[in-house]
């Protein structure tokens, strides 16, 4: 029986992986490395597992991933590079754009400077913590200005982190497209944009594969070195898909039979 190491934080362990773990334990031995109780050090990197799966994006989990990659030959999903770039919004926009993927124009500005775009959305720069998008929407002179409360809090709150705001050009789209990727197996969904209906699951529906999106998703996952991900797209009135968000730890419970798909993918990876 193969052995899989699950690197996870308490939040995900208690709230997101019950079904996944039940299935995984029926097919593999499982060792759990909990962020809140693991002491990372160079003498503590002897593992007897066939594969690691990282469910979360906490600071210790990312450091542990980096050390495992450098010090062992055990495959790890997702890679350190993939997780790190996914949470660094500016970096993933930059790298994807260079790789030929359409992303909305973006800018990182001191908070005292004006937006370079008339219609924009301010997002948090580093998307590491587990919390959801809290948009404030302002419509003014025919323009739309959206800001995520988290991003503003990081600049103006009592625990100020930076004096910078990440601006993404606003793309008007009837639907938001969400694609889950497990290696080359992709699952396509669409829903009303969160700005139209904050309850994203209310309007979400599975859709047929869109060949154009499939090509973009596979290319983006390759560029970012991600084996498992969810990617969000908006479609402009000209018909252009823009990649707006990436998640290296997607909630696979949101897709039909998701926990089983995730487990089967991990088991398959142990055979490679």
């Amino acid at each position: 029986m193969k052995e899989i190491g699950l690197i996870i934080d308490r939040y995900h362990l208690e709230n997101k992986v019950a079904e996944f773990l039940k299935i995984l334990k029926s097919k593999a031995k499982v060792s759990i490395y909990l962020e809140e109780s693991y002491l990372l050090n160079i003498d503590n990197l002897n593992f007897d597992v066939d594969l690691f799966f990282v469910k979360g994006k906490g600071k210790l989990m990312i450091a542990m991933t980096r050390m495992i990659e450098n010090e062992t030959s055990i495959p790890i999903i997702n890679s350190h590079k993939g997780i790190w770039i996914s949470i660094n919004r500016f970096m993933n926009s930059l790298i994807l754009k260079k790789g030929g993927i359409s992303v909305p124009d973006f800018s990182l500005n001191p908070s005292n400077c004006q937006s370079p775009f008339p219609n924009y959305i301010i997002k948090n720069i580093i998307d590491q913590k587990t919390y959801s998008f809290q948009p404030n929407i302002l419509k003014e002179d025919g323009h739309i200005k959206v800001s995520d409360e988290r991003a503003i809090e990081e600049v103006e709150g009592k625990d100020e982190k930076y004096q910078y705001l990440y601006y993404q050009m606003f793309i008007k789209s009837k639907w938001e497209y969400k694609v889950y990727g497990f290696g080359e197996d992709l699952y396509f969904y669409k829903q009303l944009p969160v700005l139209v209906n904050p309850n994203k699951m209310e309007t979400r529906r599975e859709i047929e594969e869109i060949p154009e999106l499939k090509e973009i998703v596979l290319r983006a996952m390759k560029i970012l070195d991600l084996k498992v991900a969810s990617l969000d797209f908006l479609k402009s009135k000209e018909g252009q898909y823009y990649l707006t968000d990436i998640n290296s730890t997607p909630n696979f419970n949101y897709i039909k039979d998701g926990p089983r798909i995730m487990v089967d993918f991990l088991i398959e990876q142990t055979r490679n």
């Binding site: 962020e35 809140e36 109780s37 002491l39 990372l40 050090n41 210790l60």
Partner: peptide
Amino acid sequence: KWYYGTPETI
């Protein structure tokens, strides 16, 4: 040598 963890783990 270095160690990285929560205060409780340490």
